[in-house]
Design a protein around this nucleic acid. Sequence first.
DNA 1: CTGAAAGCGCTTACAG
DNA 2: CTGAAAGCGCTTACAG
Lengths: 345, 345
Amino acid sequence: MVRRPKGPSIKDIAQAVGLSTAAVSYALSGNGRVSIETQENVRRVADAMGFIRNDTAARLRTGESNLLGVIVHDISNPFFAELLSDFEAFCYEAGYLTIVANTKDDLVRQATLIDALVAQNVAGLLISPGHTTSRDMMAGLRRRSKPYVICVRDINDPSADFVGADDETAGYLAARHLIDTGIVEFGFVGGHEGSKTWAGRLQGIRRALGEVGKSIAPQHIIPTSPTNEGGETATKRLLEMNPTCCAAICFNDYVAFGAYAALHLAGRLVGVNYSIVGFDNLPQSSSLLPALTTVDLFPRKIGRHAAATLLEKVRGVGSEPRRYLVEPRLVARHSVAGTLPHLRL
Amino acid sequence: MVRRPKGPSIKDIAQAVGLSTAAVSYALSGNGRVSIETQENVRRVADAMGFIRNDTAARLRTGESNLLGVIVHDISNPFFAELLSDFEAFCYEAGYLTIVANTKDDLVRQATLIDALVAQNVAGLLISPGHTTSRDMMAGLRRRSKPYVICVRDINDPSADFVGADDETAGYLAARHLIDTGIVEFGFVGGHEGSKTWAGRLQGIRRALGEVGKSIAPQHIIPTSPTNEGGETATKRLLEMNPTCCAAICFNDYVAFGAYAALHLAGRLVGVNYSIVGFDNLPQSSSLLPALTTVDLFPRKIGRHAAATLLEKVRGVGSEPRRYLVEPRLVARHSVAGTLPHLRL
DNA sequence: CTGAAAGCGCTTACAG
DNA sequence: CTGAAAGCGCTTACAG
């Protein structure tokens, strides 16, 4: 660490203008008590000297902060990247800056990061907790009544606001779509067994099947990592073990991409004699052949709503902790048999 | 903004332990001058009270900062999301936290953001400048000798380090691959005309063609937005205007996805009677049918290298500004005619 | 309309 | 080994 020439402080400006630092502060903030002419003069000189107010010092004095923290397990995940992008944009408009940090699903790192952000005196925190996070891990935040909202992964913290996707409804919509086209036997492939998201989607699937007096066979449920490769592996297994089954709900669109590959290799035709539904509606899902039918979870909307909720708490608008689930939407395209308008190949 | 109960300060701990704040500070930092027993005692009490040191105050006193700023036009762009993810991880390991901000390619916002991050007293900045950013916009940073590195989009700032992709080589590799399979007539579709990236790739394409005594026809160059839709539009135009042309280099993988859609609609078979090459190697590009041949630009590597470069400057390791271009790599798959191993459908 | 002074929470020379 | 004091760059009651 090297000492570098600092920018000018209000002291330097005060000297240049021949006023006290107090007067300069008042002039710059416009908090009355200084004539318009003085204000303008001070501002002009400050600009000329390249003055940038040290927010950090102001914060120390006033106790107010325009910094927000975001903790997620992986920013490069497109779902979180979109969520974060809209969160940041919303907060920026409201005058707040955003610090982000990746936990990589490491709970120790998560705890360290929470403290590190508190140490930066952030006004509030948005946290997508790592797997198996308990609400005890938020004890430090509660103790100093630092506002925080939990997003995406619920941890049953009754004292915290939660904003996330409605996985149960999402699962229901996917299954319902299949059922509506006459398919009642299908697999659920990919995703980490026992994760909240996975369990929620499966529950929705079960509900939809239950409504028509059916259920999903245990051997049709094949969890794997929620990736391309996971999808390919899981789909291969599903094909081998269940030759009569000709449809699968994939844990997400990546998994669906893998399923396409596996089906191609097996000589099956997606949208013709095999049906696939995904979750997330990634931008490229519409470009697959055939275009992927999927459930949109609206991560950007989650980001904006989380931002609005957090900002309310930061500003001290008191209210009971709330849960807000963004309504998912089925995007019907052509990967479900019977929905392909025409086939040219 | 509401005043909330603050966490304990070293003053509170000093009182609890019966020492001066100075002694507490020394004990906590371990900077000698305090007996081991006292250190342990102070640490125990501090933990019990839930003490978290206010970095912001320490920074004010010492002038050192463990905050870094990142300014990009869009974090939700997967290329930048991956770059940022590795940048953050690298800096975290080194003890730094990362503030991110989106400019949305708005130069006013970019300028505001730079000042806002300086106001937070960041130790350094990583900037992917908006289109038409001139080096004058970095004048404020230079004046206060705030370390910064430019990434991805070059602005010809001789006083700044630059880390980015080697677009010229990337374009060359794509074209070379086509030429090697016997294709010398092809389009270059999608991307904003005149952007550095676009121009770089085109230049590489021209070099490869030049080596075999060919050139690209102006009507084969069709810029559009670098998106799915842009790719579809551009490819349709290319097909209409140039019926004999049966290959295209797409500005990026998104554009390639759109090209697939357009070709499908036109009854062309990618990898059979039409060849496509993209850039970026998105995770899902391998799942297209046929799998997309593309050039990987390694955004994560750019992120890590940018982090290492910035940290060096922050720590005052003096050196001449350097340019570092990450070497791209062709990922040959099956979207180029003659490279498809077998066709089953 | 303006100035002198205190204080936010730390760290670090300066004394002892 | 430890304490009293100054100071980082601001803001804001308190006087005038």
